[in-house]
Every structure is written in C-alpha cells, then in structure tokens.
Design a binder for these strands. Structure first.
Lengths: 118, 118
DNA sequence: TAAATAACTAAACAAAAGGTTAGCGCTAAC
DNA sequence: GTTAGCGCTAACCTTTTGTTTAGTTATTTA
C-alpha cells in the first residue's frame, strides 16, 4: 500500500535518524523559507525580510547567523559606509535542491487540494 | 552558480509561498519524524514513542491528532479492552514520499560530511 | 532640513512548544 | 497481589521561539 514510501528494512532503521540529522540543521520555522528566498537570487537584509513574510529583524538576524555557521550562506560586504551586505547561498546549500524542489511541488499540490475542498 | 536550485522567475515567486504551505502542515519538530516512523509500517502508540526517540507521550498524542486531522494518519482500534490502537499512514501521506526520500538522502549525506570534518 | 533607507542589535516581554509527573481503566505475566 | 504494559490525558512548569519597541551610524532622496 505504501510501497512508494517504503524502503528495505536496513534503510528504514537509518531513515528516521537521517531525518533527525537533516531537521537538526534545516528544521525550524524559518530556515527553509530563508534558503528558498535566497534561491531566487542574492538578497540584502531588508529585502530578505520583505520576502520572508512575517519574520522579524531579530529572528532573521539569528537565522542568518545560524545558516552562516552551518555553511549554507555567506555574507558579502559590498561597501563599508553605508554598510551594504548581501547574503548568498553557498555551493553546499545547493545540495538541498532536491529537498526544496520536492517541498515546493508538494506544497503546491497540497494548497490546490485544500482550496478544492472548500 | 546555483543553477540547480533556481527556477524561472514565476516559479520563484510562488515557491516561497508553496514552502510556507508545506511547512504549515508538516513543519515542526516532530511531524516528519512521526511520518517517517510510520513509513516503516503501522505502529501502536508506545511502539511509536520508542521509535521517535525523545518525544513525550503528550506531544506524540498531540502530533497524532494533528496528523489525523490533516489526513496523513488513521487510527485503527483493534480491541476495546484493553484498548489496542494502531496508527497507519493514509494514501495521502504517501504523496510525501519524494519529500521524505530527498530528506533522508540529504540527511545521510550531511551526517557523513559532518563526521569527516571532525 | 526632514524623511526614508540600510543593517542591524539590545531589552523586555509574550506566545508557543515541549517536558515532567501523575493517574486512569484495563489486562497479562510473575 | 504486585508489577508491568497499554493508550492515553490533565495539570503544571520550563525552554525555546518570536514580537515589539527603540535606538545606532550613515547615506540618499525630496
């Protein structure tokens, strides 16, 4: 019945753990949204805050620090006065493309389903 | 540079929103872990709690209610005394297979990378 | 000259999420 | 007859996460 979602038993045992490991770095309310926003192209702080609707400056600031630490994002300082900073995804972030693509696909499908139900 | 992660501009605009929609139902600390656990096969409450390490009964109970509401899980009551309940994924949950598979793949890769770095 | 924009950050607080403990009714094993 | 397991749930508390407000330094735009 759930063939598509099942693997062999050995893979099964490790899959829950692998999901843990993934969610540890990209879980949470904002991480993937920020990455998705940056996948449209490099962005500056306020630009990013406008794209990721609902995020506060403080939280965005923290999320960016976290994403930088984990090697998903780099800060590029363009000028010093006034400070102009751009955030861009690293090569490593692009390893997430499959995850993002499948999530976007699913989200789109799910939204349509919910709309039809009403 | 980030070719793999980029789409055309129209898709881009909707992608952040689609991710929002997806995370709205499957975001959070436990949802995907519970679904992953159940993808190994149907499970009972305590069995599930043992598989999803770290989750408390209270939280598992809440997550299951939520997952049921959103049509990912069904409760099957086998006997009434003692109560024996099994949780199983619905057909709709299997639409998440791409998301889960890509997440497991990425998580495995990421774990290996982190291990090598130390 | 005033206002807006940029890129934040500190402080104070509120909300959400999660943990802990205890307990219920019931059964099966020791 | 006590202990352990099952499937929860309520009450209470802590931790995490997020919000709001205000403020900094500096430039561009009207």
């Amino acid at each position: 019945m759930n063939d598509k979602i099942k693997y062999n038993s050995k893979e099964c045992i490790s899959s829950v753990g692998a999901i843990d490991d993934a969610l540890y770095v990209i879980g949470g309310k904002w991480k993937l949204r920020v990455i998705a926003a940056l996948s449209e192209g490099d962005k500056r702080f306020n630009e990013l805050q406008r794209t990721v609707t609902g995020i506060s400056a403080r939280v965005l600031s923290n999320e960016l620090k976290d994403l930088e630490l984990n090697g998903f994002v780099v800060r590029i300082i363009h000028t010093k006065s006034p400070v102009i900073v751009e955030y861009k995804l690293t090569e490593y972030a692009s390893t997430l493309s499959d995850v993002l693509i499948s999530l976007v696909k699913w989200g789109t499908m799910h939204r349509d389903k919910i709309r039809k139900e009403r």
